[in-house]
Each structure stands twice: as structure tokens, then as C-alpha cells.
Design a protein around this nucleic acid. Structure first.
Length: 121
DNA sequence: AATTTGACCCGTC
DNA sequence: AGACGGGCCAAAT
């Protein structure tokens, strides 16, 4: 088996984000085994053309949509997120759907259950 | 070949 | 909240 290229690993990491949840660019990079390569993730997404890729589940680490407010990309991403039940206000997704927030479970791709308020251990 | 750009991130102030 | 500086690095200028 040919080892997966960096780009393929990134795409796989993006596809691994469960519906209704989001992850940061840096988080995806780390997941793909490419720490500190957040920009590469952004570049790969910008090149991607596969409509089946859930690229809209990738947001900035501050949970805001990376596109300029009001731009086409911005509106497209916001619509796709809302379509799967993610609340977006002022270009930012609700904290309970974000991963890497502060709970270990989140970092380990916590099971789909965004409804609950993450109780600290 | 050198410099700038970009769907980014983090610590510090 | 925002600003600044340093990382990161493939592509485009």
C-alpha cells in the first residue's frame, strides 16, 4: 500500500468530522498527522472541488467562519452548517458543537450528542 | 530567484 | 475585543 499523501490524509480528517459538529483548521491538521500545518489544510480546501467533502465543518480556532463576512463563501458555508442543525450567529458557530474546546472527549471525536452542556470532569 | 499571498494558529500585551 | 510578532509553507507573482 502506498502511504497516503498529506493531502489525502487531510481530506480523510475532514471527512471524519461528524455531521453537526465542527473542527478547526489546526485541529484537522493535527488529526491528519501534520501538526502546525493549518495553512496547508486551508489551501487544500481552497483547491478541493469535491462537493461531497464536508468542508463547511472546518472553521477557525475561534469558531468563526474563515471567509470574509458577507462574502459568497461565507454565506455558502453558513447555509450548509445551518442545514445540518448548527447554530451560527455573527459568523460564529455555537460553542457546544466545537471540538478541541476543553474536554478530552471532544479531542477524541466525542460521540454525536451536542445537546448536552459539556460537564467538566 | 526573490517576494508576497493565503478558507490559519498561538502566546503575549 | 483587538494588535503584534513569529511559525508554517505551497503557490502565485
Amino acid at each position: 500500500m502506498e502511504p497516503l499523501s498529506a493531502e489525502e490524509r487531510i481530506l480523510a480528517a475532514v471527512r471524519a468530522i461528524p455531521p453537526g459538529r465542527v473542527a478547526g483548521y489546526g485541529e484537522v491538521a493535527r488529526r491528519a498527522g501534520l501538526p502546525r500545518r493549518a495553512r496547508l489544510v486551508a489551501r487544500v480546501l481552497s483547491q478541493n472541488d469535491d462537493p461531497s467533502l464536508p468542508w463547511h465543518r472546518v472553521v477557525r480556532s475561534d469558531r468563526k467562519i474563515a471567509f470574509p463576512d458577507g462574502s459568497e463563501g461565507f454565506k455558502r458555508q453558513r447555509a450548509r452548517l445551518r442545514a445540518e442543525g448548527v447554530t451560527v450567529t455573527n459568523g460564529r458557530v455555537a460553542p457546544d458543537v466545537a471540538m478541541g474546546g476543553d474536554d478530552l472527549d471532544a479531542l477524541l471525536w466525542a460521540p454525536p450528542e451536542p445537546a448536552q452542556k459539556s460537564r467538566r470532569r
